[in-house]
């Protein structure tokens, strides 16, 4: 039991570290590109002309959607950290504690939010930035795995709640 939990903890740590490093690298790249774009704009900008939101709509849309994507990807890391909490509790022997049940729910919610967020952002970017977006493509990856996984975590939360009730009953009997 302990060895399986420890293996799972190591794998979760690897996933968290790699997801976080990829996200940080993407944020840094975005920041650098934005700085280069700003330098180009500063070299040619007319200081007397006011900044128009309407003219720069596409640019604003791009920035907002990119930032939204970063937040959505952060949700996955959040889910993994809660999964780690579950594993730590199981390792300690608190199999049916409230913390485990709550964490299962949080992981499920994070997965659902990630998928919904991704669908919304990709749909908006398809309409505003004319990006390629096929629902089937998204359906194959995120929707196939994450929605069932989220539902599975919700069911596990319920099952662990029932196991907790059994344990409490047992403890009272003793």
């Amino acid at each position: 039991m302990k060895s399986n939990v420890q293996t799972l903890q190591v794998i979760t740590w690897v996933l968290i570290i790699s997801a976080a490093s990829i996200l940080l690298n993407d944020i840094n790249e975005f920041r650098l590109n934005r700085f280069t774009e700003f330098q180009d704009w500063a070299a040619t900008a007319n200081p007397d002309k006011p900044i128009s939101f309407k003219e720069n709509f596409m640019e604003w849309a791009y920035y907002s959607l990119t930032v939204a994507m970063f937040v959505i990807r952060g949700l996955l890391i959040y889910a993994f950290t809660h999964f780690l909490t579950i594993l730590k509790e199981i390792e300690k022997g608190n199999y049916y504690g409230t913390k485990v049940t709550e964490s299962f729910k949080k992981v499920g919610n994070a997965f659902i939010s990630y998928t919904i967020g991704l669908v919304v952002v990709q749909t908006i970017s398809a309409f505003t930035l004319k990006n390629d977006f096929t629902f089937i493509q998204l359906f194959k990856t995120e929707l196939t795995y994450l929605i069932p996984a989220a539902l599975g975590f919700f069911i596990l939360a319920e099952l662990f709640k029932q196991a907790k009730a059994l344990k409490e009953e047992n403890d009272l009997t003793i």
Partner: peptide, 29 residues
């Protein structure tokens, strides 16, 4: 060491193994 199939499927498999053990304890209870 990047997340590959072995790591992801190994993780999912290990999770099921842990679940089976936790369920076994619940069965005993």
């Amino acid at each position: 060491l990047s997340p590959n199939d072995l790591l992801i499927y190994g993780g999912i498999g290990a999770f099921f193994l842990v679940l089976s053990e936790v369920f076994d304890r619940a069965r005993l209870l």
